[in-house]
Amino acid sequence: MGVVTLTIDNKEVKAKEEMTVLEAAQSAGIDIPTLCHHEKLEPYTACRLCMVEVESRGRVKLDTACSSPVKENMVVRTKTEDIIKIRRTLLELMLSHAPDSRELQALVKEYGADKDRFEKEASFCIHCGLCVRYCAEVKKKSAVGFINSGVRREISFVPEIASKECWNCKECFELCPTEALQTAYLFTVAQISDSPSFELESEK
C-alpha cells in the first residue's frame, strides 16, 4: 500500500494513498467540520461544509475534503477566509431549517453564523441524507428515501417497509442532526395506524 506525503495547514502529513483529505486531516488531528459524512457510508458531498482549498500540480481549487483523494505533494488549506465565509453562509442556510440543532449550534460560534439571517423554513430537514444512505447501504432495507428534486426534495418513509422494519431498528435516529427524521417517522406511523389494513409489527 503506497504512502503519500501532503501538507495540511502547513503541517506535513503522511497518508495512505487511498485516503481522502478528510481522513488524512483527521489522522493528523486537524479538524474539518462535516455533516453528511459517515465512516460507514460512501462519500456524499452534499452539505459542502467540509470544503477546503487544495493545491495540486499547480492548480488551486475548492473541493470537499470528504471525497477528495490525497495526492503526493498536495497542499491543503482548511480555513482560509473564503472557506470561513462559505461555511458561515452554509450554516446560516441550514439554521433556517433547524435553528435548534445541536450539531449546528456547535459550529455557530466558530464561524460567526447568524441563525436569523434567513427566513425560517417549515421543514427541519437539512438533506444530509444520513438516514437514507444508512438504511440503504448498511441496513439494506431502504425504508426511507428521498422524493422529488430541487427545493422540493424531502425525505419520505415507505410505509409498507417502515411498518415492518423500523420499530425494532431506529438506528438512523441517532444520525439525524435535526429533528426532521423523527417527525417524519411519527407522521408515517400515524398514517399507517390510521389505515386498518396495516398492523404495526410492535403490536403483534
Binding site: 442556510l93 441550514m94 437539512i126 430541487g150 427545493v151
Partner: peptide, 14 residues
C-alpha cells in the same frame, strides 16, 4: 432552477 436542480447539495438547493 429551484425546480429543476437535483436538490442534493446545500448551496444550490437552499
Amino acid at each position: 432552477l429551484a425546480n429543476e436542480s437535483c436538490g442534493k447539495c446545500t448551496p444550490c438547493r437552499d
